[in-house]
Computed example of a mutant assay.
Amino acid sequence: MGDTATMESGYVFDPSWEREHGRLLALEEIYDSQSRHRLNELGVADGWHCLEVGCGAGSIARWLAKQVGAAGRVLATDLDTRFANAHGLSNLEIRTHDLRTDDLPDASFDLVHARAVIEHLPDRDEALRRLAAATRPGGWVVVEDFDIDGPMYPAAARYCPPGYTELAERLGRALRAAFGAAGVDTGMGRRLPQALADAGLTEVGAQVHAPVLTGGDAAFLPLTLRSLRPRLLATGEMTDMDIEDVITLTKSHGTTCIPNFMVIAWGRKPV
């Protein structure tokens, strides 16, 4: 899902948008390295059974399939799987699935991973309980969500070039308002460690990931802003010219910016 989903889940991105696949690929380019690092640290190995929820364009699912080898398997799910491709990996199954309503096998996976998914769901605690229930005793649940609430968007704005801080702060307010209006929990990342503990997991840990992007090198922000343009304008915080100014800034070589703070949290199911 952060990655793809339907609007009734609170998901704000339209999977039918002509450039949505490119936006998802750009998201993977920014955030995959941190995801892979954490999954490696937790010991993903040959023979593991893994569940990737909200697989989007499928990069993490394919990486997991290569890590677990022929003796392992990966189930990758999403509400809309149009962009996911197994690329011939026989141990990777891609399945259309709704975490809110469709069953998952109990205690079946050594690893369950979801990135930019839980924040969009109306009953987030129940969704985390479902992920925990699908994890075998001793297995890991890894969840990643954004935190654009409270002081986080002003902090991100500080990494913009001088003279653009006020514009970046207004963009942060617009994003928070647009996501909030759609039912997204804009501070879900901050709440993940406690939420995983409440789901019955132990050995809970978390990190905040804030990649500093160099202008002209990453397409994620321009594509995201174009996709969200109607929602951003509806907040009253941004004009169309403001949005174009930000897009121009993110494409300018030599500038820097932070897209959003991503929190990655993990917990282990008790044996």
Rank of each mutant, 00 (worst) to 15 (best):
G56L: 01
R170P: 11
A178Q: 05
A197L: 09
D198R: 02
S9G: 11
L27F: 10
M262P: 05
A116C: 10
A265R: 01
M1K: 04
D106P: 12
L131W: 06
L92W: 02
G267F: 01
D240L: 04
K251I: 06
L79Y: 03
T77Y: 07
A218T: 13
A70F: 04
E41Q: 13
V263E: 01
P15Y: 01
V271C: 10
P105D: 13
D198N: 08
C160T: 13
A107F: 15
N260S: 14
R173E: 11
T250W: 02
G2K: 01
D147A: 04
S33E: 15
V184M: 10
E93G: 06
A114H: 07
G267M: 02
H97R: 07
R226M: 14
E29A: 14
I94M: 10
P161E: 12
E20K: 08
F220I: 11
P193F: 00
A156T: 13
D217A: 15
P137H: 07
G72N: 02
R95C: 14
L223W: 04
S227V: 10
A206T: 09
M241Y: 07
A234G: 10
Y164L: 11
T255I: 10
A61R: 00
T165L: 14
K251S: 12
V212E: 06
W48S: 04
E237R: 03
L39T: 01
G216N: 05
R19G: 03
T81C: 09
G163V: 14
L25V: 11
R268V: 11
R130A: 09
L39P: 00
E244L: 11
A116R: 03
L27H: 07
G172C: 11
M188C: 14
A199Y: 03
T214K: 12
G138W: 07
V212A: 14
R38K: 15
D217R: 14
T256N: 13
R115Q: 03
L131M: 15
I247S: 05
S59P: 05
H21Y: 14
G183M: 05
N91S: 09
L192E: 00
L233F: 08
A133I: 06
R158T: 12
T214Y: 12
D98K: 13
L228I: 11
R231V: 10
E144L: 06
F83Y: 15
R73E: 09
A218N: 15
T4C: 08
G163D: 12
W48N: 05
G56C: 04
T248C: 06
G47I: 03
A168T: 07
G88Q: 11
R23A: 01
P230K: 14
L39H: 00
A57Q: 01
E119Q: 13
R129E: 11
D145F: 02
F146V: 14
G163S: 13
A174L: 10
L128D: 00
T81D: 01
A57I: 00
P154W: 10
P122F: 05
I247E: 10
L201H: 02
P105F: 06
G88R: 06
I258N: 02
D78T: 02
R73Y: 03
A26G: 01
S16E: 08
G180Q: 07
L121N: 08
R62D: 00
P259I: 04
G47Q: 05
L89G: 09
R36Y: 08
V68S: 06
P105Q: 08
H37R: 15
